[in-house]
Amino acid sequence: MITTTDLTKVYRTGERDITALDGVNLHVPEGEVYGVIGQSGAGKSSLIRCVNLLERPTSGTVTVDGADLTALARRGSRTAPARRPTAELRAARSRIGMVFQHFNLLSSRTVQGNVELPLEILGLDRRERAAKARELLDLVGLADKARVHPARLSGGQKQRVGIARALAGDPKVLLSDEATSALDPETTRSVLQLLRDLNKQLGLTVLLITHEMDVVKAVCDSAALMSNGRITESGTLTDLLATPGSELARELFPVGGEPTGEDRTVVDVTFHGGTATEPVISQLSRTYDIDISILGAAMDTIGGRQVGRMRIELPGPFEDNVVPIGYLRQQGLQAEVVTAPTAKGAPVPTLAKEGAE
């Protein structure tokens, strides 16, 4: 549904060039909620603004729902120069909704009036606008606030108005730029649930920009990690959790804990699917008659399935624990060796470091 290829954005300030996007390749499948996460300055907001061409990319392509927006932006005529949106580009962008962090509501208009604004631009008459706006407000749970002005709304209600307004053009794609970062945790959960409900009810593809891992865990099917203008890692959450050495997996389910002694092997174990509810660790302890220490654990539910990670400590060097680690992998778990002194003080084998089977 959304694809960027070698996308680059360079901002020129005086004699200095600042590269915000550095060859970004991203693919968001149709019907998914896809999160892009990274620290401030990673390039997330530049990316999402280039997706709907609020910012013109310096190079590369952006394709949304089969339309190459960058090609449409380059087309011009005497009446519509290339630096201004063409009719084709405007039509393509009308199928992309945008939700902003700070709501951007007009204080002089009522809630219904704010939702009607894009409908006015689309040329609907007064009766059509009113009917459509009421329908959208009912969809986001604000039918009773139609005649209220934004100043009388809570932050969460304002964001729901922003979402209703973004849906006015019946978009196939919804872009969310840090839409919940100004909200309290409870309100954040309700807005994220609304986005997920809209994704399912309307078949919307949602591209969500955030710096909060909890947002990704709560609502996303897939995610990408951005750093210094580049995508460093991407995939479905399930695949990421099963990938040895995944930075996103570590951030989504952080586990801490240091070895309690020098002669110990520390292993990060990832549970997903049916294994998340099985007593695998206790079975391991009984099967091999070893004492296992749990140094840290993080469990959560993603897509209705329990997923989690656990850091365990096994007694002895790596050579003494090859078979127990193999047992964990045979049970369908991802087992990644974090710390493992060897009997002779040699480096840990590459196989153990990578957590491969």
Results as ranks from 00 to 15, higher is better:
residue 26 L to T: 13
residue 162 G to N: 09
residue 295 L to R: 00
residue 153 L to E: 04
residue 243 T to S: 08
residue 222 S to Q: 11
residue 342 T to E: 02
residue 186 E to F: 12
residue 44 K to S: 02
residue 123 G to Y: 10
residue 290 I to K: 05
residue 134 R to F: 08
residue 259 P to N: 02
residue 333 L to H: 09
residue 123 G to K: 08
residue 267 V to G: 01
residue 233 E to R: 07
residue 304 G to N: 00
residue 343 A to P: 06
residue 282 S to M: 10
residue 173 V to A: 09
residue 227 S to Q: 15
residue 28 V to M: 15
residue 340 A to H: 02
residue 250 R to V: 11
residue 347 P to F: 03
residue 139 L to F: 04
residue 217 K to P: 00
residue 62 V to Q: 04
residue 66 G to R: 01
residue 325 I to E: 05
residue 133 A to D: 05
residue 240 L to P: 00
residue 219 V to N: 05
residue 67 A to L: 07
residue 274 G to I: 15
residue 113 G to T: 09
residue 72 L to E: 13
residue 223 A to N: 03
residue 131 A to I: 08
residue 266 V to W: 06
residue 26 L to E: 13
residue 10 V to A: 07
residue 180 T to K: 01
residue 158 K to W: 10
residue 16 R to N: 11
residue 49 R to Q: 11
residue 112 Q to L: 13
residue 197 D to F: 01
residue 109 R to K: 11
residue 266 V to Q: 12
residue 296 G to F: 03
residue 357 E to Y: 14
residue 229 G to D: 07
residue 162 G to Q: 12
residue 30 E to V: 10
residue 230 R to V: 10
residue 299 M to L: 06
residue 149 H to K: 15
residue 318 F to W: 14
residue 304 G to H: 00
residue 91 A to R: 15
residue 263 D to E: 14
residue 346 A to E: 15
residue 73 A to C: 09
residue 150 P to M: 03
residue 270 T to L: 02
residue 98 M to L: 07
residue 128 E to A: 15
residue 193 Q to T: 13
residue 352 A to L: 09
residue 180 T to I: 01
residue 26 L to Q: 12
residue 294 I to C: 00
residue 65 D to H: 07
residue 41 G to E: 02
residue 109 R to P: 01
residue 3 T to G: 09
residue 322 V to T: 08
residue 49 R to I: 06
residue 279 P to M: 03
residue 243 T to N: 05
residue 84 R to P: 06
residue 83 R to W: 15
residue 144 D to E: 14
residue 59 S to I: 07
residue 215 V to A: 06
residue 235 G to N: 04
residue 314 L to C: 03
residue 207 L to P: 11
residue 125 D to S: 05
residue 245 G to D: 14
residue 280 V to D: 02
residue 160 R to G: 05
residue 352 A to H: 14
residue 19 T to L: 08
residue 62 V to F: 04
residue 43 G to C: 12
residue 273 G to S: 00
residue 328 L to G: 04
residue 223 A to H: 00
residue 186 E to S: 14
residue 275 T to I: 10
residue 38 G to E: 00
residue 161 V to K: 05
residue 293 S to E: 15
residue 316 G to W: 03
residue 93 R to D: 12
residue 227 S to V: 15
residue 123 G to F: 10
residue 320 D to P: 02
residue 44 K to N: 07
residue 52 N to K: 09
residue 186 E to P: 09
residue 48 I to P: 03
residue 227 S to L: 14
residue 209 I to R: 08
residue 271 F to M: 06
residue 183 L to I: 04
residue 83 R to C: 12
residue 334 Q to A: 13
residue 255 V to Y: 01
residue 335 A to M: 10
residue 30 E to L: 08
residue 213 M to I: 06
residue 187 T to E: 00
residue 140 V to T: 06
residue 332 G to Y: 03
residue 314 L to R: 03
residue 25 N to M: 08
residue 300 D to R: 00
residue 337 V to I: 10
residue 226 M to K: 12
residue 164 A to N: 11
residue 282 S to G: 07
residue 127 R to N: 13
residue 130 A to R: 14
residue 166 A to V: 01
residue 150 P to Q: 06
residue 10 V to P: 07
